[in-house]
Nucleic acid binder design. Sequence first.
DNA 1: TCTTTTATGCTCACTATGAGTATAAAAGAA
DNA 2: TTCTTTTATACTCATAGTGAGCATAAAAGA
Lengths: 288, 288
Amino acid sequence: MTQKQLCEIDLLTVVITLGPLAPHILTVNQGQELPSGPLTISHRSLQKGLHQWAERHTGCAIGHMEQLYTFTDHTQKASQRQLIRISYLALARVLDPALHDAHSLYDYFPWEDRRSSHNASLLERFRHEITLWARSNSERMGRVASAFGLHDLPWDDEKVLDRYELLWEAGLVSRASSDTVTATTLYDNRRILATALSRLRAKIRYTPIVFDLLPEAFTLLQLQQAMENLSGRPMHKPNFRRLVLHQNLVEETGARDATAPGRPAKLYRFRPSAATSCYLSGAMLPLS
Amino acid sequence: MTQKQLCEIDLLTVVITLGPLAPHILTVNQGQELPSGPLTISHRSLQKGLHQWAERHTGCAIGHMEQLYTFTDHTQKASQRQLIRISYLALARVLDPALHDAHSLYDYFPWEDRRSSHNASLLERFRHEITLWARSNSERMGRVASAFGLHDLPWDDEKVLDRYELLWEAGLVSRASSDTVTATTLYDNRRILATALSRLRAKIRYTPIVFDLLPEAFTLLQLQQAMENLSGRPMHKPNFRRLVLHQNLVEETGARDATAPGRPAKLYRFRPSAATSCYLSGAMLPLS
DNA sequence: TCTTTTATGCTCACTATGAGTATAAAAGAA
DNA sequence: TTCTTTTATACTCATAGTGAGCATAAAAGA
């Protein structure tokens, strides 16, 4: 059609790994910055190139990887040359997040972890304040009700991005930085993180990617806690076991886990033959 | 990091609308070409700009729009300047596809329409031939079994892209063009179409976007046929009605549809108050 | 031996699903 | 008129999955 404008391309990836209590992201330069590189990592496929590049820069073996979202960075206004950022989601199996430059995702979005009562009260406050903010505007009120599960609507794990954007619009999360440019960058980065968490929560429901975050052999409790960490809510133990075992997703290794107190748990491994589809959803029950 | 390479950006959109028997895409230049424009449609947000642009160029009101995928076009090898294509999915409510430059999606992917016995036999042939092709390679065989629902695995509507890519790799869909460049472009375009159909089939399950394709008032049969056209499989009528009505997704308009033969059906309209989440899946039963 | 701690197994009510069948309301043909 | 065709709408029934609770088993340490 008309003449094409030239752009700069930035590839970046959210590398997620599993801590004991929460999913973590691997960052570079002591936090705040996501691993990102220029387009030149072209391996014919952008993704494969970025995959190798990210493994080298984080020092972790990266399993699953997928494209997240592409957006324009509207921080640099006057510049003629637009910046396009293509973001990816990557999963790494890591032994100890403390050894890496890793940060808990729930440090960025405490309200997304609905397991502690402390966060529950934080969320209650947000619910209250954002309702005040949206009160006069019915379109806003609809979005708020849907995102925060207000009236009799259910809470949807996956609406991480909607919630973050609403809280930002309402000024309830730190716009602290007086510098607009810095604030917008912060906003953009968290948007990516929110998108990543959203996508991850959606995907663990109907694909077996959780296993890319777990060690080879794991107990059913570890698997359950992985799901709880990712979804941010507690699950009903007996039902979770039933669900997993009923689907022939895993098989016993024969060994047991002797490290924990109490009766030692059987160790299981993922059965990739069943890899085609799984269904870890369902058993999402708040602890009574 | 290192110096950034400059790229050309192409924005393109798959505009989907509903024909009587199948979903259609709106094309420009008498088929084969998707509406696409240069990046300059920057409205601060890529999407909003493209939205308006697509409405002007197709002459249809576009409802829902979302980003699909970003990929590099590997047709132009020698060129230093890489081309990045950002694709979008758009839904248009159109009265008569015949009036527009529209093409049935199932012209491109006949095997995705599992309602006619003719296509069923085509699929059987493909199943046979692609099994021969994958026979010796266990990794291939796994992908094939999962994509085509081989042994006792279920057929998954949403694996449109996987199926297309496998058929292409196996040489079962037209690589006809002797010119490699043309063939690759064709391949890339169909890949986008497959991605679009994939995404659409996934989304109609848990969001109410079908209603963006239907007229204001519709009968339950029209709604069912819309779902059937999109998913490519027949549904059980009584169960479909039960599902829809049970969820309070729609409300009666009071009018009836007198145009069709037989007992006139009640007309319904979408209840956006229930817009937050729906659940049109489930009732996906092959006609016995 | 008793207590603590975790693993593992079982029950039960209820809802959603897959499938089939029956009745109701219109239009047109004999 | 009555009968047939066509579609809409309603109802039944068995079964599987879900949400929730309780009970037992196996280890370690007091």
